[in-house]
């Protein structure tokens, strides 16, 4: 087994280093992540900005997905048959539709039809430069809002299904004695959830929730089909311009990997603390 593995690695190394007719040009790449402008200040390059947008997309999608997922979990465990059915339907829909298709449906429905994005953009612009700066820092430049929010919505719905299953499992696994003690002390159903069960559920599911955030970050690359300049789309655009395909895609892969890996290390550390 080990011999076979060594042979495979050796072949790959030979293939890449010796047999491979490719003109490696790494020197140009770092400036696309971070560079100094004429004033000497650091500026994010195309790939750096892409990662920043990927991050904003994922944070929004996860935050909304988390809230929606919690709502779905509570609805599925609740007493109302209609809520249970509605929540179940949404979970099944988003679990059985490819995220890419979900994204396109969300884009053509919310982005193009349902919501007046240009008017929202104009409204934010009218609020003054401070508000506009804040809005753009938290999301995208105003012109792209009509793509950004459908993308966030699609990712959030997709992730909500997984978040809801994580929450549902943990709520169902909660010690019955906790409910009983809270009930006997006179807490209402809402208080039992809010003060007793959910805080424990959040604590217990933190590692899974963190894992799901990382998977949102990876999943967000599908948004590239909407020409929204997150990391994957930025890489595609850059590859089309400067043609260093291998360097660019290896760099993009490394950026995803390093960022996600550091996140998972951070979460693991927080969990132990």
């Amino acid at each position: 087994m080990l011999v076979f593995l060594a042979a495979a690695l050796g072949w790959l190394a030979w293939r890449v280093l010796v047999d491979f007719k490719y003109d490696w040009q790494w020197a140009d790449i770092p400036q696309y992540i971070l560079h100094r402008d004429s004033g000497g200040r650091f500026q994010l390059g195309t790939l750096g900005q892409g990662l920043a947008l990927t991050l904003r997309l994922s944070v929004w999608a996860s935050a909304l997905g988390l809230a929606l997922g919690l709502g779905l979990a509570l609805a599925r465990l609740g007493a109302s048959l209609y809520l249970r059915l509605a929540a179940r339907s949404l979970v099944e829909l988003s679990r059985n539709i490819p995220p890419l298709v979900l994204l396109l449906v969300a884009f053509y429905f919310f982005g193009a039809q349902a919501l007046p994005w240009p008017r929202l953009a104009a409204f934010i612009r009218d609020c003054g430069p401070g508000v506009q700066w804040l809005a753009e820092a938290a999301t995208v430049r105003l012109g792209d809002l009509d793509v950004f929010f459908p993308a966030v919505a699609a990712l959030a719905i997709y992730e909500a299904a997984y978040f809801s299953e994580i929450f549902r499992g943990a709520i169902q696994a909660a010690d019955r004695g906790q409910w009983e003690a809270a009930w006997c002390l006179g807490l209402s159903r809402l208080q039992q959830y809010r003060l007793i069960v959910l805080p424990q559920v959040f604590r217990k599911t933190a590692p899974q929730l963190a894992g799901q955030f990382i998977s949102t970050l990876k999943e967000s690359s599908v948004v590239s089909v909407l020409s929204l300049a997150e990391l994957t789309y930025s890489s595609m655009k850059l590859a089309a311009t400067i043609h260093h395909l291998f360097e660019i895609w290896l760099t993009a892969a490394a950026m995803y990997f390093i960022f996600n890996f550091l996140l998972s290390l951070l979460f693991a550390r927080l969990e132990r603390a």
Binding site: G177, Q178, E180, A181, A182, G186, L187, L195
Partner: peptide
């Protein structure tokens, strides 16, 4: 209860004050 059923995410004091504050 036989199994105590204390709230593990709260301090001892908070276990005692939660219901008097929230319910009473």
């Amino acid at each position: 209860f036989q199994a105590f059923n204390l709230f593990p995410h709260l301090s001892v004091l908070e276990n005692l004050t939660l219901a008097p504050i929230r319910v009473r």
